[in-house]
């Protein structure tokens, strides 16, 4: 038992004035880097992207001799080496959800709002810190996955460099897509509050919804290019010559995707302020 000495030691920091956002950003950065789930999910995302690139490109190279000239012509080496991002988006989605639902699950959210009653500032700081970290990690992973894949493909002379048309956009776009997807997940987590429910919603959004829309007959099938994940992926797969699915132009598609994220964040913000914590 520690005896209490009185008077208690007074704080060494006099009350600060001025804008609170920088302090809240630092706090959210500390929160993100002091829990293990951050490292696990980001590691899973990066490992999936790089690992799948190596495996798939290896298989492609092994099967290259058996491919028809048409198949070879339709091959997009850049997008192919980034196929892992389809799985990585699930890990990023989970982390985006956890950034807020872990606070609701543990009761930490009440400590957070007692320390910073300006809830929109908290949401903005969470979104900014999480998006920045995700963008850096997934862009690096995308570059690594691309490099590994092209190194393997170059054994058949079919690899491309970053300077080839559309390639840099595909590589950078993968990081951008995953960061914005993370923000959509963060918004859903804020709205739903429960980890399991919010993760289910994210998976439904990126996996189930496009599949269902793909079943729509005739002219109705054109709605699928406006779905969030399809619109966002236009930036990544835009150059794919062999695409069978209708798609928006790359940056327009990504713009639509960002609009979804902004709308979701706005709804999350309104709900966050109105609901009891």
């Amino acid at each position: 038992m520690v005896a209490i000495e009185f008077p208690l030691p007074r704080t060494t920091v006099p009350p600060k004035t001025g804008p609170i956002l920088p302090d809240v950003l630092r706090s959210e950065w500390d929160k993100l880097r002091t829990v293990r789930s951050t490292y696990w999910t980001l590691f899973a995302a990066a490992a999936t992207m790089i690992g799948l690139s190596a495996i798939l490109c290896g298989i492609y190279v092994a099967q290259y001799a058996h491919l028809s000239a048409k198949d070879r012509a339709l091959f997009d080496p850049a997008s192919f080496s980034l196929t892992g991002s389809f799985l990585a988006q699930l890990a990023i989605g989970v982390l985006g959800v956890l950034v807020i639902t872990s606070e609701y699950g543990s009761g930490m959210i009440r400590s957070t709002f007692a320390a910073v009653p300006q809830r929109l500032t908290v949401l903005a700081a969470k979104a900014a810190v999480f998006a920045a970290v995700t963008l850096v990690v997934t862009t690096a992973a995308s570059l690594a996955a691309f490099s590994v894949g092209q190194m393997i493909l170059s054994s058949k002379g079919i690899g491309v460099g970053l300077g080839a048309p559309g390639v840099l956009r595909t590589v950078i776009g993968t990081g951008l897509y995953l960061a914005v997807l993370g923000l959509l997940a963060l918004s859903l987590g804020t709205i739903i509050r429960k980890t399991a429910g919010a993760i289910a919603a994210v998976f439904g959004l990126v996996l189930v919804l496009p599949t269902i829309a793909g079943l729509l007959p005739g002219s109705l099938s054109s709605v699928q290019k406006f779905l969030p994940s399809n619109a966002g992926l236009a930036l990544v797969t835009g150059s794919h010559a062999g695409k069978t699915v209708p798609s928006l132009a790359p940056w327009i598609g990504f713009g639509v995707f960002c609009l979804y994220a902004v709308a979701a964040l706005a709804v999350a913000g309104v709900i966050l302020v109105r609901r009891d914590a």
Binding site: K16, D30, T34, R36, S37, M108, S111
Partner: peptide, 26 residues
């Protein structure tokens, strides 16, 4: 508030630091 309004995976020191930082406390 209530006991354990704390993220289970965070250490006591990190928990205090996160909240302290949000108010500019060192």
């Amino acid at each position: 508030l209530e006991a354990k309004a704390i993220h289970d995976g965070r250490s006591a020191r990190d928990h205090l630091r996160c909240l302290a930082r949000s108010n500019g406390i060192g």
